[in-house]
Write a protein that binds this DNA or RNA. Structure first.
Lengths: 361, 361
DNA sequence: GAGAGGGATTGAAACATTTCAATGCCCGCA
DNA sequence: TGCGGGCATTGAAATGTTTCAATCCCTCTC
């Protein structure tokens, strides 16, 4: 950690013990306006029932006193809340930060507040957050599950919480889901590399307990078989524990140490690819001359890397938006709700980081 | 929008009207366990008061019935909540997505839930979110304000909501704040370019109502004056309405159309710089040969752009963490809370995108 | 001038908790 | 046998809303 990380100046000043102890309630407003409690409530919730004159009086009392309604109390009596939980696997990843705006824009329009949680790929942390969100009586939850098992999510839904799977299909259509076809994505990447003539490729994958990772591997193997290769021979897979640039560097080191060095690397996401590219440059290994690299997600800056990164693009904005929409219809549908699965197809974006292997064979 | 953006397959199946209508309450648990309501509450909140045997009985009833505590009701009676609002200016920007993890990790440890809101630089949307968060009785709010005026935030704090400014100093130390010295950042960038010999630089700035933008401009002007130049002569500033790659392209077009084309461009953030670099390449203008480019924020991929981007680095992870910490101490401090301002210093990271101007003058 | 009709307002119950004073119970000690 | 003390449990009040049946009052009609 460099020294810029330490604060250079820390000033303290100005104490205050002014903070309000007790808040005003509608009772106070009612007293101030000379009406009953029920009328204040009506002004707020069903103004069409209240005479114009009375409304004005009550509203000016609210303003004069600075009354702020108490949402928890309101929810206690009223039932459903206007809060939605979003549980992502890694809050800092560019992947999720490109999905989040789609979710936010849709749900903000519907007047929902977002509780964002990061499971950090830990099923325990995920379970903790789900429990807490359920206690908060959120109307629904958008989740990209950490583990393979989603039984607990189905139960959650049966207990009345809207659930939509993000970037993951539900087994047997028991839940709404929005996803990108990951098998297809792995296949596209593999097909591209094998078509270029690569015969041995490194695969920097995440833990296979993560469904996306398992699916992409399956696609990659499928492509290998279609190219007439034995997947176990043609693919040397490394499982990374962290899926960022750091992980990419670690993984690359392992691949290079291997006796039979591959001529191309397929990375489970663009951040990992960033690490690989960076380290290749550092080691003086030419990309794509000596080593081709394919990323995944096609994050915004992939086109601007050096070399520009070949990657698998997914419609992230749409993914988030579609998920949010599904959740909203889930709320509205009372009894006759039909689970929906929306599957987007990924697209291969070919750029400068892939080329035929040095000695084609 | 390409055709991958449309879902390729939409299947619907499996209706269910199973969703629970009414939830269980502690009363049901009490009945099931054969104890009183108060005892159930004690098991949950002050187990040390309850006999071992009773505790076991109650806990097994809770499990058997699948009881889930009601957080809103709990909060209604108990007072303070364990929820924190985070209001950022643009939820999708890499800048905030690199700050968010620092906040999340600290607050998750303290068992707080995060309500994340994006003001999209609109004071109206910000006001709406602040009102809603206050209604939800959040314990505190971390905010990067959209406008210049923070009077409403001071009032908010006086009403009992913890407030910490993110990336912005409070006037007269009336609020806790965590920030990076933006004047200094603008100065660093300007000093670097003027020292290289540039005499006329383009400045793609955001709206000057955003404090960060105004501060960086001030720093830039200061550097110009120190270099013996008239800021109004040496700097041609363009105000962008959107601060992303798209905005960068728009801004670049305007700068190039200008009669007196600058030899360097300082961009208000790295995403804008990304757009500039991309468009320069498209137009066949060499960077840094014909045009130097400096970004701001030093997001993770800045080093991997082509050419690698010179940028101003800020300790984002620490920024988030420090802000979260300040907020937490704000909760704990009852009466004798002293406002703190923590100012981090930015750092100039010189990479390949800057060089002396083509015809030094 | 009486009664019907209808809009505006009210009062009280209900929501799921926490908290705290009061009660109950058991044990030991005199 | 009676009493004080301490632990465990209970019952009821309080929290800030919404909702709904009941009431009030005014106007219109016959």
């Amino acid at each position: 950690m460099s020294d810029i990380d330490r604060p250079s100046k820390t000033s303290t000043s100005g104490s205050d013990g002014e903070r309000a102890r007790t808040r005003l309630s509608m009772v106070d407003v009612a007293a101030h306006a000379g009406v009953s409690l029920g009328t204040v409530s009506n002004v707020l919730n069903r103004p069409e029932l209240v005479a114009e004159r009375t409304q004005r009086r009550v509203r000016s009392s609210i303003a004069a006193l600075g009354f702020v309604p108490n949402a928890p109390a309101r929810q206690l009596r009223g039932g459903r809340s206007r809060t939605v939980g979003v549980v992502v696997r890694e809050i800092g990843s560019p992947y999720f930060s490109e999905i989040l705006p789609g979710i936010e824009s849709k749900l903000a329009k519907e007047q929902f507040l977002l509780m964002v949680c990061s499971s950090d790929d830990s099923p325990d942390k995920e379970a903790y957050y789900l429990k807490t969100l359920e206690e908060h009586r959120v109307a629904g939850i958008l989740i990209s599950p950490a583990g393979d098992d989603i039984e607990h999510l189905i139960e959650l839904r049966q207990r009345g919480v809207g659930v939509v799977l993000l970037d993951r299909l539900g087994v047997g259509s028991q839940l709404c889901a929005v996803a990108v076809n990951n098998v297809q994505g792995g296949d596209l990447a593999g097909d591209h590399l094998f078509s270029l003539g690569h015969r041995r490729i490194g695969f920097l994958n995440g833990p296979s307990t993560v469904r996306q990772c398992a699916d992409r591997r399956e696609g990659l193997h499928r492509a290998a078989r279609r190219a007439g290769l034995d997947p176990d021979e043609a693919i040397s897979e490394i499982t990374l524990s962290v899926l960022n640039a750091q992980g990419g560097e670690t993984g690359l080191a392992q691949l290079l140490d291997d006796g039979r060095r591959p001529s191309a690397i397929f990375c489970i996401n663009d951040m990992v690819a960033v690490g690989v590219l960076r380290d290749l440059a550092k080691r003086g290994i030419a990309a794509p001359g000596e080593m081709s690299v394919v990323g995944y997600d096609d994050v915004e800056f992939a086109a601007l890397l050096s070399p520009a990164l070949t990657s698998i693009r997914m419609p992230k904005q749409q993914l988030g938006q579609a998920a949010a929409e599904l959740l909203v219809t889930d709320f509205r549908a009372d009894d006759n709700h039909w689970h929906q699965e929306i599957v987007f197809q990924p697209e291969l974006i070919i750029r400068a980081s892939t080329a035929p292997p040095p000695t084609s064979g």
